[in-house]
Design a protein around this nucleic acid. Structure first.
Lengths: 139, 139
DNA sequence: ACCACTTTTGCAACTTTATTGCATTTCAAG
DNA sequence: CTTGAAATGCAATAAAGTTGCAAAAGTGGT
């Protein structure tokens, strides 16, 4: 894995403390994170608005993707490719656990092809599976 | 199509004006609606909290489903079956248009089967396709 | 048609999540 | 090291959703 500064540079982001810390935090997390998660961890160190802006800049530069779910709170996870563009296609399945409420990326699973009705043009697909995750299933 | 009062009764909901109006409004809409959409239409007639509570009661009684997307605003659409339960399985694909931003239910499309990793148990699936809808494609 | 009971509604207040403006500080190219 | 552009912190504001409670309305039994 490349080092943090290298990753930020590759995504055309200036190297600042909040970005290094948040990127590192994402790398050590296996489930998606919300702004509130980050605020809980970096409350004393960074302003909450700065955390919002860091998430936005990561999103726009292809470091993070936003995961749609019905909770109303934005959830983010690291992208697993090198694109520096926003909304590039990083097709994979997301899994949300009913018990622990965590969302994981299942990077090995592709989203199956789909035959859309006439005149509909697909640009992107999001598949969210809900159920019980491996960790909760083994308790 | 059954009449409005019949539908409410079948879903164990009392017949009130706000419910009749909102149900009827959903029936005449082909895309998903937000609370703000309803508020814009029924502002003078009903309190905004009442509209929130109407949406919640419809959701809990299986009349509406909530569509996950990354906008942070809850979107609802009518369920196309007779279940009176919340979170019953009404598997179909949702389509969100990049141009007009509307979300439609594609009731004819089933979500393809998927092979999950070991120990993961699937209970529900949400597939959201983003792209350009038929209406915007023809302009 | 009325009564008694339960649910629903409207209003006000509040919470949570996210955004904007602006002065100050920090980054990094030359 | 200097300089200009970008990032940060703080305060204010906006947007989305929730809660408590008293008044009003719906419903089943008579």
């Amino acid at each position: 894995m490349k080092n943090l500064e290298h990753i930020l540079k590759h995504h055309h982001l200036r190297i600042t403390q909040v970005r290094l810390d948040i990127l590192s935090y994402f790398q050590h997390q296996k489930s998606a994170l919300t702004h509130a998660d980050l605020e809980a961890n970096f409350d004393k160190k960074f302003d909450r608005v700065t955390i919002y802006r860091t998430l936005t800049s990561f999103l726009e530069n292809g470091l993070l993707h936003k995961i749609p779910d019905d909770s109303g709170v934005a959830k983010y996870a690291l992208c697993h490719h090198d694109s520096t563009e926003h909304n590039h296609d990083d097709q994979h399945v997301h899994f949300k656990c009913r018990i622990c409420a965590k969302i994981e990326c299942l990077h090995n699973l592709d989203i199956p092809a789909l035959h859309l009705p006439k005149h509909y043009k697909m640009e992107h697909a999001n598949l969210l599976i809900e159920g019980v995750c491996a960790a909760c299933n083994n308790k």
